[in-house]
């Protein structure tokens, strides 16, 4: 087992963010996906994110080379065997996650730490496929992972103290703050922010004020760096709709019922920054186009 090798299953934005964060902290990364194409796209995504950071003075060209040199990719699961820490960030459903985690059970060293990224899927449920369920823990990251300093640590019922301690130490090594949360839909961050975003959309839909003015009022009024509508565009409206629906279904609370305007925008494929339009318009580089 190589203490400094971190395996990441998956190539989505969260997986990319984890890879970049880990490699920036001088650890080696191996990313797995069965599709060569997805892996290439992930590397491109990481490079794009680094370039944005360089533009904003957050990183340098030599740091970029160092980070990229630490990230390897593979389409063969067995190549991950030496890793000391595994991130499962690929499965979209409980079933998919269970399958991947049970694969890892056989590939990984029995001392290796198993982490699944999760927003709603239960760590306890997934851990049932493991011979030793105490090894599995959940982490909830917020996009962009390389920039957002807070991570929610989700303990399953069987997760051991040792696993929790190692995970916390690992997060500290990555320069991250964390909070421990109980296994419950939405945890803290998603559950608290969604009603705010949803309500801002209702206010806009009801014609109380313009999108710009809603954001301006909340930003300046409550000292937030971003208004709720700009934040929704930034996160991605499709994600927000998905989370709201999931929380509405799980908790049955009307405050999580998605605003019809959100549904409309998602239907129109106006998903926010990533598609160039949401509540506001954006250029190719994701910068706001002023009206």
């Amino acid at each position: 087992m190589k203490q400094n090798l971190v395996a990441i299953l998956g190539t989505g934005t969260i997986a990319q963010g984890i890879a970049m964060t880990v490699a920036r902290n001088a650890l080696d990364v191996i990313m797995y996906d069965e599709s060569e194409e997805n892996l290439k796209e992930a590397l491109k995504g990481i490079e794009f994110a680094i370039d944005r950071e360089i533009e904003k003075w957050g990183m340098t060209e030599s740091e970029k080379r160092a980070v990229l040199s630490r990230i390897e990719t593979t389409t063969v699961k067995a190549d991950l065997a030496n890793a000391a820490i595994f991130f499962e960030s690929k499965g979209k459903t409980e079933e998919e996650k269970k399958e991947l985690i049970s694969n890892l059970d056989f590939i990984s060293d029995s001392d290796a730490l198993l982490i699944m990224t999760t927003t709603t899927i239960s760590v306890t449920e997934v851990s049932k496929v493991l011979r030793d369920p105490s090894r599995l823990i959940g982490l909830h990251f917020i996009h962009p992972v390389y920039k957002v300093p807070i991570v929610e640590v989700v303990k399953g019922l069987k997760t051991s103290k040792e696993t929790v301690l190692r995970t916390k130490q690992f997060l500290s090594d990555l320069g991250r703050e964390y909070i421990e949360v109980f296994e419950y839909p939405g945890y803290v961050t998603t559950r608290v922010i969604l009603p705010l975003l949803n309500e801002a959309m209702h206010v806009l839909m009801e014609g109380l004020a313009s999108a710009e003015d809603i954001d301006k009022a909340i930003r300046l009024g409550y000292d937030m760096s971003m208004g709720p509508l700009a934040l929704a565009d930034y996160i991605g409206l499709d994600y927000i709709l998905e989370w709201l629906e999931s929380l509405f279904k799980e908790l049955g609370e009307p405050k999580f019922r998605p605003c019809p305007l959100l549904r409309k925008l998602v239907r129109e494929e106006k998903l926010g920054i990533k598609t160039g339009e949401g509540f506001f318009k954006y250029d190719k580089e994701g910068k706001r186009v002023e009206k």
Binding site: E53, K56, W57, G58, M59, T60, E63, K147, S225
Partner: peptide, 16 residues
Amino acid sequence: LQELSKQEADSLLNKH
């Protein structure tokens, strides 16, 4: 002006 975070500002002055 450029909506920089503390880390980015630090890197701007120390590395760029």
